[in-house]
Amino acid sequence: MSTPLRVLVTKIGFDGHDRGSRLVAAFLRDAGHEVVYTPPWQEISAVVTLALQEDVDVIGVSSLATDHLIVPDLMEALCDAGLDHVEVIVGGIVPDNEIPLLTDAGVARVFGPGSSREDIVDGVEELGRSAQQRKLSRGGFEA
């Protein structure tokens, strides 16, 4: 069995609809990964601290009610904390014309409604492995 990925599944902003984030957490758990799961309304600074301490490979942000509009702020904060190797995905409701707002800020994938369990798990695994590679390529502990 390969090493599990570590994934942070969270919600920022004001919305509290968490059916989607709970389902995604369950999908990833059932695919053998370790999911650090938070309640909604996380501050951006808190997400950065969680990602850092938990050494996650991927951050999944669930957004149903326009909270994606502050994801660019999250991307900037992650970069400032030296976490630019971490891959960020956004799941939920993002209008087509606002997707570039996220991808331009560095979001790797946007999973819209109707994304299947396989789409999500495969996407996270691919991104997670590349995040791990990127982290390794920047040097590790030396004897």
Binding site: R29, A31, G32, E34, V36, Y37
Partner: peptide
């Protein structure tokens, strides 16, 4: 079964 976990 799967080795996965939800850490809450």
């Amino acid at each position: 079964v799967t080795g996965g976990a939800v850490l809450g």
